[in-house]
Amino acid sequence: MSKQTITVTVNGEAYTEEVEPRMLLVHFIREKLSLTGTHIGCDSTSCGACTILMDGKSIKSCTMFAVQANGKHFTTIEGVAQNGQYHPLQEGFKEEHGLQCGFCTPGMIMRAIELLDKNPNPTEEEIRWGISGNLCRCTGYVNIVKAVQYAAKKMAEAPKEKGALNEV
């Protein structure tokens, strides 16, 4: 099948690439753009390891074709830290030991970014439901919940730190 040319912006950088229509977005990001922080953990849209932001919304990049991404803006885990500074969520995951093997972590963080964007002060239950599309096998989620709470608190204290990502 003929390839199509797409242009996408990822972490602020524009890329124009030729892709087969069937190429999954997650493969495009990992293989074509060599951004391997976005992971693949299942084949049934269940695990959330491939979660990225599309125009500020968290999506599972395994369940979208790269051709659908034409013209859209994405943020992956590689674009979360700004100017050498951790995002409050990255900091929260480190401070609260919200990661172990690190495989689900990028997807968790990308999901949590949108969660806090929409609900800056979530309850524990809202956090748990909010990350229910992301599986973690190591942490038992307790410290992930704490990491999100840590970030919520930090972002409430310094609202200016929150901006950059959501503008993409």
């Binding site: 849209t45 959330g48 979660t51 919304k57 968290s58 999506i59 599972k60 369940t63 979208m64 999901r111 949108e114 969660l115 439901w129 909010g130 229910s132 599309g133 992301n134």
Partner: peptide, 11 residues
Amino acid sequence: VMIADPQVRNL
């Protein structure tokens, strides 16, 4: 809110 999960519901 009971459909799949938040990422799925975004699309």
